[in-house]
Design a protein around this nucleic acid. Structure first.
Lengths: 365, 365
DNA sequence: GAACATCTTGATACCGGTATCAATCGCGAT
DNA sequence: ATCGCGATTGATACCGGTATCAAGATGTTC
């Protein structure tokens, strides 16, 4: 007996006919609503199984108006941070009976707009978005989301012009703590890898404000936290210790190499992202420096490899899983009809101190 | 003017009415098919824009029967390998005008079955699957896919009982090469971290066959490659040098710790997955061993951090991106109607030699 | 000016479900 | 036997698009 290739899958009507009952009865049985006598129910079930009936969720969504699907637009699926968030989000969604439709923008606005378009077209019940937009940017492609009152949760990044629930990390405080930890060990020249991206670095501290306004919220906050720590310690801000280039690993290496070539180089570096950390490590290695003897280091986002490095690297660990579940719960609550005013949930990150931080060596000063 | 919350989005009918034309004319204009006079076309476009019309892809798919969506079922979204594949796959799909719907099973058969169910229900045009099944297992939840003749491409893992296109790595050869490289340096005791998972390790080499049959194809192949290399060199197989436990990092550490405690411990280790590598590194570190002086190491899957480790770690690099694009192309060809017999595409992996391999130290022998 | 080809248009069936509602059935009470 | 009531059932409209096809408008040719 060869496999039966049946290009036209059985529908409710066919099941109904085969079972000798009306369509509505089959729908009630298979859909599990209304009431059906046990006898016919069993017969229908048997016929349905035999025919290999599967519900067509498109058709169902068509009439019910709900797809039981959450749209998730991530800035970068390649980033372990977002992958971690996605896991948490997926778990929470699944246990609530929702599917998740994930799209990645790679930080590209056009792709973000396209992604929103797809999700709206597919009639998702709600959207989680980590926007590729500066904190004070306007995001026109979200107008349609607002207009249709599609529940929306901002993830990891705030945008002033968008009124929606949000789930973020207290980046400023996390950053401040990390830098303060470095300063507490005696460092006064702390490099900061990944400031807000810009073509022309800030001339001075006040000029930073302008840059921060147009940068990703998270980047801006981390830089502000850095400034907070400097200010607390009375250390003047030095533009040349902050990178403002494109965020790819090689650029981090280049930037750190530049810092290390300064006449008054940093004795410690705070790398605020995974790529920044590996890029920084590469630069340190290229210069033949030893961590933490020659230079101290703190990274962002914990990972298995960071803890098995030699030395194990101190990092700011974000509660990625919780961020994801919280975003899902938040969105599901909206979908369920909650109409409380938009609120922002702030989670705290956690500095994990390992062995990549030491006192600055007197030699390199 | 406050934002208009319009819970009932404009439909083609509404646009038609507002523009004073028939529905079909609007459909033709917006759908970009058939012919419409320029004048009415412009009017309709203007009205549609003003009303904020967006096509409902569900409704469209309903009649056309195609969703322009590819379903992807991954064994583990947390694994960088699959993330890399996904990127390639997504790019290829997008450039062909397809969306991608990703689900992760975390190697759980039930979740895999559920995932397939979701994709079939959502009427995806084709499915890419990295099955959580042993090479000789039967996978009943794929019956429906076969029956409906939904194009299917197996990713990274073959299953004997499933007749479908497949895109995989030549794991056996990649593994053989890596182990041979170790042997060429003089190692005769090579630890293998992540053999096929089983409760009771193989008693002898022939018993392995049974285990391999029920394990993931890729795991089995890698083990076979290991055996190939041993045989080439005339080195007898030693069960105690192969781990067969659950694949979580802590288990790798435990297993390697066990190997190192052997009276005749390995002088080199081949870690066939990212988690296996970090777990192994942790064990090495715990024992206070130095790599490559005390023990040599080769990992699987390249990553930025592996190359900035001290020492930089040699790895077998898989062409992840290409694997993804190839899977997509393969699937899209089927969707386009290709009816050539199912074929398996085999890609070669590439051993990247860095500095984690050296001659075995005479001390540890 | 008539005949004919072509372009444009709208009415309508359909996709596969769900929801509503009225009709029918079964059964106990009067 | 009649009635009432809840349980069961089926007919049908509907969701928002697409596809088909016939009708009407326009234009071309002789």
């Amino acid at each position: 007996m060869s496999i039966e290739h049946d290009r036209t899958p059985p529908t409710i009507s066919e099941v109904a006919e085969a079972a000798g009952v009306g369509r509505a009865t089959v729908a009630r049985t298979l859909g599990g609503y209304g009431s059906v006598s046990p006898r016919t129910r069993d017969r229908i079930l048997a016929v349905a199984r035999e025919l290999g009936y599967r519900p067509n969720s498109l058709a169902r969504s068509m009439t019910t108006g709900e797809t039981r699907t959450l749209g998730v637009v991530l800035a970068d699926v390649g980033n372990p941070f977002f992958v971690g968030v996605l896991r948490g989000l997926g778990e929470a969604a699944r246990s609530a009976g929702y599917d998740v439709l994930v799209l990645s923008t790679d930080e590209d606005r056009n792709r973000e707009a396209a992604a929103i378009d797809v999700l709206v077209g597919k009639q998702v019940d709600g959207i989680v978005l980590s926007p590729a937009a500066g904190r004070s940017d306007v995001v026109p492609h979200l107008d349609i989301v607002a207009k249709r009152a599609i529940p929306l949760v901002l993830l990891d990044r705030l945008v002033d012009t968008v009124e929606a629930d949000a789930v973020v990390i207290n980046n400023r405080e996390a950053s401040r703590q990390a830098v303060a930890a470095l300063i507490a060990r005696g460092h006064r020249r702390v490099g900061f890898v990944w400031g807000p991206v810009t073509n022309e670095p800030a001339a001075d501290a006040t000029d930073l404000r302008r840059i921060i306004d147009h940068a990703l919220w998270s980047d801006g906050e981390r830089l502000l936290g850095y400034l907070d720590a400097l200010e607390e310690a009375g250390i003047p801000f030095d533009t040349s210790l902050v990178t403002h280039v494109l965020k790819h690993e090689p650029q981090a290496t280049r930037a750190v190499l530049g810092m290390l070539a300064l006449s008054d180089p940093p004795t410690a570096i705070f790398a605020t992202e995974t790529d920044a950390l590996t890029g920084t490590l590469r630069a340190i290695r290229q210069r033949g420096l030893r961590c933490p003897d020659d230079i101290s280091l703190i990274g962002f986002d914990d990972s298995s490899w960071a803890s098995v490095m030699e030395p194990p690297i101190s990092v700011v660990a974000q509660p990625v899983h919780q961020l994801g579940t919280l975003a899902a719960e938040c969105l599901l609550a909206r979908i369920a009809g909650s109409d409380s005013p938009a609120s922002t949930h702030v989670l705290e990150a956690n500095l994990i101190e390992r062995q990549s931080v030491a006192e600055p060596s007197t030699l390199t000063r």
